[in-house]
Design a protein around this nucleic acid. Structure first.
Lengths: 155, 155
DNA sequence: TATTGTTATACTCTATAACTATA
DNA sequence: TATAGTTATAGAGTATAACAATA
């Protein structure tokens, strides 16, 4: 095993740090009684009000049948509302309730704290430098802004 | 949803890219019939020959009972050898077979390709810059070099 | 006939704890 | 009595496909 990180490449460090960042974020949102997928779902619905469960499934890479249970839960907690579309009565349009919007605000606060804590060893310039490099890689690989691919199956 | 990546912080980008990098790496090693945890296990055993299953479990954050099945598989494929310690006949000392070492070499090749592909949009200077920033964050958070925390449970 | 959301089911995965052999 | 490895098992989680309503 390597004695320090100096011989380890950027891609491996990224996997390692990415997992770590995800775990820390999960800890934070668990204080709100949420899991990261639920958080992502709320963010997605907040950003695209009225989207269907199919569209949500597509966007998050989850099976539609799995969406059902998630939305059930969020609806039961008064965070999300299902309403039948008037155009196509098969689809359920999803929106955040007022309570859901409010919670979304708190999630944003947590995310900012998370961001600050995680990048603590870097100064402002360096953070922007890092974010810039990462953005270029993300765009190069065609990753959708704001959605990460971790909600599907991954071994 | 954000239109581009410009308003997204480094920590989120890191989670997103880390997951993506992990998925791509998983695709690569699957060509060798391996999963990423198996790869990590081979690397760990190769780096610390003679370590016990307990030590391996500790290092990877896996339950000892889980290690058994993994080692069974790797042993059946002739990649890893269990030998009873002469000092303490309870422990199984793990080592790579010649075949395991050879496979480890191919894994290293794949890792290098993965690294190159993943960082493709960056030039050599920028890669070193990126790796340097990531290393500082990794050290600040006390991550063990070369081991990533993704083998335990994570939702 | 195709699609949306839902439910049911079979399958896999995981965690836990019991068990053995050594110490 | 305690520890290394193993096995068994119950519970959770997942994927798949069947289903009802609507198009």
């Amino acid at each position: 095993m390597p004695e320090d990180h100096s011989e380890i490449g950027a891609a491996f460090l990224l996997t390692q740090l990415g997992t770590h960042a995800a775990t820390r974020f999960a800890e934070r949102v668990s204080a709100l009684g949420l899991t990261p997928p639920q958080t992502g779902m709320l963010r997605m619905i907040g950003g695209t009000p009225g989207l269907s469960q199919q569209a949500l499934a597509q966007a998050l890479g989850m099976a539609p049948s799995k969406i059902v249970a998630f939305v059930d839960e969020l609806e039961a907690r008064g965070l999300v509302r299902r309403s039948r579309s008037v155009r196509d009565r098969r689809v359920h349009e999803l929106t955040l309730t007022d309570q859901g919007q409010e919670l979304m605000g708190r999630i944003r606060e947590l995310a900012a704290e998370h961001e600050a804590d995680f990048c603590q060893p870097l100064d402002a310039d360096e953070r922007e430098q890092l974010a810039g490099l990462l953005r270029r890689i993300a765009e190069h690989h065609g990753l959708a802004p704001g959605v990460h691919p971790g909600y599907r199956s991954l071994r």
